[in-house]
Structure formats: structure tokens, C-alpha cells
Simulated scan of single mutants.
Amino acid sequence: MTAPTPSRRLLSVPAADTGTGDTDPQVHVGRGSAATVVVGVSGELDLATGPSVEARVLAAVDTAPGGRVVLDLNAVGFLGLRGVAMLRAAADRARATGASLVVVLDPAAPAARALRLVRGPGLTVVAVDEPVADAS
């Protein structure tokens, strides 16, 4: 199987969020436009990493009331049930703040395969052939 050929660019590269003092390298937050927050997640989302990643993602959702949060999961190598619970919490928080949450995934990404196995987490998933975090 060959990797998808990049053919489109969506948003700017999320800059590492170092202003919080948190050294967790798994979550990077940036701005796509005035009303769009872009969150790139990498690594494994499991019982060990889920709580810290969830806290950072929910904090990013809180910065976009009434706007849009784009969550790029293309660099997630493993999405466990704790990661799915984090996605549901993020979707619920977005709805509560009047924001929309869009998950960006390559259909062949490990996280996409995991999401196909769980029943309706209530997310809008957009399939792209290039990770948002790698777009320029």
C-alpha cells in the first residue's frame, strides 16, 4: 500500500503551545483564522496519556466559543478507548460553548481505523490526504 499523494493544503502549521508551561509534546495548538483553533495531536492516546491530552484539547476548545476547532489526529499512532472518550468530551464541550469540532483524518490513519470500530462518537470527520500539521 502506498501513502496518499498530498494534493491540497488546509490550514497553517499549528505552533507548539509553550505558553502554558506544559512540556507535553503531544498537543500543539495554533490559529487557522480569527474564529478557528487548530489542534494537532500526535503519539498514543491511551489510559496513560489520555488525561493530559484531554485537558489540553478541552482548553483549546474553550478558546473558540462560537467558532470552530479543527482537531488533526493524523499523527496519532494509537487511539484507545480513553482517546475516544476524549473525543466525545471535546465534542460535548464544543457544543456547550457553541463551537463546532471537526476531526481531520486520512482514511488510512490508525485513528481513523479505530473510529470506524466505535459506534457514533458524534464527531464530524473530514478525510484528507495530508495532515493539517504538515500543511504550509
Rank of each mutant, 00 (worst) to 15 (best):
T2E: 09
S7K: 09
S7W: 11
R8L: 13
R8I: 09
S12C: 02
A15I: 15
A16R: 11
D17I: 05
T18F: 10
T18D: 09
T20S: 15
G21M: 13
D22M: 11
T23I: 09
P25I: 11
Q26C: 11
V27W: 02
H28M: 09
V29I: 13
G30C: 09
G30E: 12
G32W: 00
G32N: 05
S33V: 10
S33G: 07
A35K: 13
T36I: 01
V38A: 02
G40T: 00
V41L: 06
S42N: 11
G43A: 11
D46E: 14
L47C: 14
L47K: 12
A48S: 12
G50N: 02
S52R: 14
V53D: 01
V53G: 08
E54S: 08
E54N: 08
A55P: 01
A55Q: 05
V57W: 02
A59S: 04
A59Y: 04
A60F: 02
A60H: 04
A60Q: 08
V61C: 03
D62N: 12
T63K: 08
A64Y: 05
P65T: 13
P65V: 03
P65R: 10
G66R: 09
G67T: 08
G67A: 12
R68V: 04
R68Y: 08
V70S: 01
L71N: 02
L73E: 00
L73Q: 10
N74C: 12
N74I: 05
N74L: 06
A75E: 03
A75N: 03
V76F: 11
G77S: 15
G77N: 08
G77M: 13
F78E: 07
L79G: 10
L79V: 01
G80F: 13
G80W: 06
R82S: 11
R82K: 10
R82F: 03
R82L: 10
V84Q: 03
R88T: 13
A90I: 01
A90H: 01
A91D: 12
A91H: 06
A91N: 12
D92F: 14
R93A: 02
A94I: 03
R95K: 09
A96N: 05
A96L: 10
A96T: 05
G98K: 04
G98R: 10
S100F: 05
V102L: 13
V102W: 02
V102T: 06
V103C: 07
V103R: 06
V103Y: 01
D106W: 10
P107I: 03
A109M: 02
A111Y: 03
A111M: 06
A111V: 10
R113A: 09
L115K: 11
R116Y: 06
L117S: 14
V118E: 15
R119Y: 15
G122Y: 03
G122D: 15
G122S: 13
L123W: 06
L123Y: 06
L123Q: 04
T124V: 07
T124E: 09
V125S: 08
A127D: 14
A127R: 09
D129M: 02
E130D: 15
E130S: 10
E130R: 02
D134G: 00
A135E: 00
